[in-house]
Simulated scan of single mutants.
Amino acid sequence: MSESKAEKLIQSLIRTVSLELLLLITCLSGDHIMTLSNVKKSMWAGALVDNTTHGVVGALSWAIVIDLDLDPRKIVACLICSLFSMAVDIDHFFAAKSLKLKAALSLKNRPSFHATSPLLLVVILLWILSLFLKKIPCLKTLSLCLIIAVFSHHIRDASRHGLWLPPFGETTPLPIWLYITSTLILPLLIKVIYQNFVIV
C-alpha cells in the first residue's frame, strides 16, 4: 500500500470514528433533552426536538456511509438524507387528516411510514430495478439512503414503541443499549454495501 493510500485510509478512519462519536452524542443528548420538564410541557418543543434529532441522526449516519469530506455534493447528500429522515413523521398528519399538531400526535395507531417491513420491500424493489436500469445508477444510492433515513428513524422510535413489522406484529420497546448499538452499527453496515456495490 502506497503512503498516499495509507494516509487516505487513516483519514477516512478518523472521520468515521469522529462521526460515530457525534452520532452517539446526538442520540444521547436528543433523548435527554426530550426528558426535560420544559420540553415535556410543550407539544411543539417536544416535536421539534424529536424531529430535529431524527434529522441529525440521518445526516450523520449518511455522512459515515459516504465518508463525508468537504465535497459539496456529499454535504448536500447528507442534507437530503436528513430531510428524508425527518419526513417520515409527515404520515402523522396524513393519518390525522389534519395539519394540527395535537391531532397528529393523538393517533390511536401508528401511521403507515412507521412500518418497517414495507420499507424493506421498497428497498429490494429499488435495488432490483437498478439492475435493469443501469443507466440510472442513483437508484442503488437512493435505496441505501432510504435505509439509513427511515431505519435510523424507526430504530430510535423503537426505544419507546418497539418496531412495527406488519403483518407480523410489533416488537417490545428496544432497550437503550440495543437502540444505541443498532444506530451506530447501521451506517457501518451500509457503508460496506455502498463501497462494494455502488462505488465503481
Rank of each mutant, 00 (worst) to 15 (best):
W127D: 01
A104P: 07
K74Y: 00
V122K: 05
I124E: 04
L99P: 09
D71F: 09
F94A: 07
K100G: 03
M86L: 07
L107K: 02
D69V: 05
L83C: 09
L121D: 01
K100Q: 13
K108D: 14
K135R: 13
A115S: 11
A115E: 05
L133K: 13
A87E: 03
C81E: 09
R110Y: 04
A103I: 01
K140F: 00
P111A: 13
P111R: 04
H92G: 04
A87H: 07
K74F: 00
H114L: 08
L107M: 02
L121F: 14
N109S: 11
F93Y: 14
A115N: 13
S82Y: 05
D69M: 05
P118H: 08
K74P: 04
L125I: 12
I128Y: 15
I124D: 00
L79Q: 05
A103C: 01
L70P: 00
L105A: 07
D89W: 10
L125Y: 03
T116R: 01
V123H: 04
V122T: 11
L126N: 02
P72S: 01
S98M: 06
K100E: 15
L101I: 07
I75E: 07
H92V: 09
H92S: 08
A103M: 06
C81G: 08
S130P: 00
I75C: 10
L83Q: 09
V123A: 04
K74E: 05
I124N: 00
L99A: 14
L126Q: 06
C81R: 01
P118S: 06
S82G: 12
L142M: 14
C138A: 10
K108E: 14
V88D: 01
F84T: 07
S112V: 14
F113W: 12
R110K: 13
T116E: 02
S112A: 10
L70D: 02
S106C: 05
D71N: 15
V76P: 06
R110G: 00
A96N: 04
A95K: 10
S106M: 03
S106I: 03
F94V: 12
A96D: 06
L139Y: 10
L121H: 01
H114M: 04
D69G: 04
I75R: 14
P111V: 04
F94E: 00
C81T: 15
S112N: 08
S112H: 10
M86R: 14
V123D: 06
A103R: 04
A103D: 15
R110W: 02
S112F: 13
S117I: 12
L101Y: 11
L70M: 11
S112L: 14
L139E: 03
R73K: 13
V76T: 08
K134L: 05
K140L: 10
K108H: 12
K102S: 14
L99F: 15
P118I: 02
D71V: 09
C138M: 13
K97W: 11
A96E: 05
L129Y: 12
H114G: 01
S85Y: 02
F94T: 15
S117L: 14
L83E: 06
I124W: 13
C78E: 11
H92A: 06
K134S: 12
L139M: 12
S130V: 13
K100T: 03
K97N: 12
R73G: 03
K140E: 02
L139I: 13
T116N: 00
L99Q: 09
P137T: 07
L99S: 12
S112E: 07
T116Y: 05
L120M: 13
M86V: 10
H114A: 03
S82Q: 12
